[in-house]
Amino acid sequence: MPNLRGEHYDDGEHYDDGEHYDDGERETVGRGLSRVRAAADWIENAVTRGEVDLDEQLEKLLKGSGEYAMGRGVPAHVHAEAILSALLEARPAGLTIGQLMSATERTRAQVHTGLAHLRKVAAAKGLPPVTWDKRWGYRMLDDAPEVWIGYERAFFEAVHHRVENFIAGTLLPHQKKTPNDPYIRTVMAQMCAIESTLQLLASPE
């Protein structure tokens, strides 16, 4: 399995005065970030899906108990390696977030952290792209351009709708109020071009 560890992880983060974080400080920051990510993910699910019950893993993480009382500062590449192994073992099928949590024994927030890192390094490691769809969940398939294109078009479509709504709801009212402002005229011209490009990319050939 490819090594996903970043080359400069051991260099550590640095303060402006050149002093570096020690292991204890990095562990403390990691614990706090894990809790914030988990809480943010729970809030998103509560708002978008109405899921307000805490799952067992999230409850343990927020309380700092059980297996999550230690090791919460694990770097992203470690989560990514576990997720990569699970996805490769599952293919050609895919795995949902819940299945990835079960297969890797990680929290929802840690799975999302690992997926983000895996996507970041996939090209450099010669891996196929990570895709997602409602039927299969997350997959990493070799030689599947139709799957990759489908995911990419779905992404372009989602971004296109966001840009379209931003233009209609924010930029256009701004322009109506200050039609001669060079700034908003430039922004509108550029954003309308971006919106048209995204629409084209999202459309089947």
Rank of each mutant, 00 (worst) to 15 (best):
R5Q: 15
E67R: 12
A122Q: 13
T186A: 13
H79D: 14
P128F: 05
N3K: 01
L4H: 08
A103K: 03
L115E: 02
A86H: 12
L87P: 14
Y183V: 04
P204G: 13
R162H: 12
D10Q: 06
P179M: 01
R106S: 11
T197L: 07
A40W: 03
D143R: 03
T48W: 14
R162V: 07
A38M: 06
R185N: 14
L61T: 05
D17I: 04
A80P: 12
D17W: 14
C192I: 09
R26G: 01
D133L: 02
I149N: 11
A154R: 07
D10I: 00
E164M: 07
L200C: 08
R5N: 09
D143S: 05
G12Q: 12
A90S: 13
N45V: 05
H160Y: 12
S85G: 04
D17C: 13
L4M: 05
P179I: 06
L118Q: 00
Y151F: 14
G126E: 10
A93E: 11
R5K: 14
V111L: 11
Y138I: 01
G98F: 06
H14R: 12
L88E: 14
G24V: 02
V36Q: 08
G6A: 12
P75V: 01
G50F: 15
K63T: 04
M70G: 09
R35N: 12
T113S: 13
E44S: 09
L115N: 06
D11M: 07
T104R: 02
L95K: 11
F166T: 09
D133T: 05
L88R: 15
C192N: 12
E27V: 06
L88Q: 14
T131S: 09
Q190V: 12
L118D: 09
R49M: 10
H174I: 02
R108T: 00
T113A: 13
V29I: 12
H8Y: 15
P173Q: 08
R108E: 14
D41S: 11
R135E: 15
G64Q: 11
T104F: 11
I83G: 02
A124H: 14
A123K: 10
D53F: 02
N180A: 10
W148R: 03
P128S: 06
G6H: 10
W132F: 12
H20Q: 10
E195F: 01
E27M: 01
E205R: 07
E27C: 02
I149K: 01
G126F: 13
H77F: 15
A38E: 15
E164K: 02
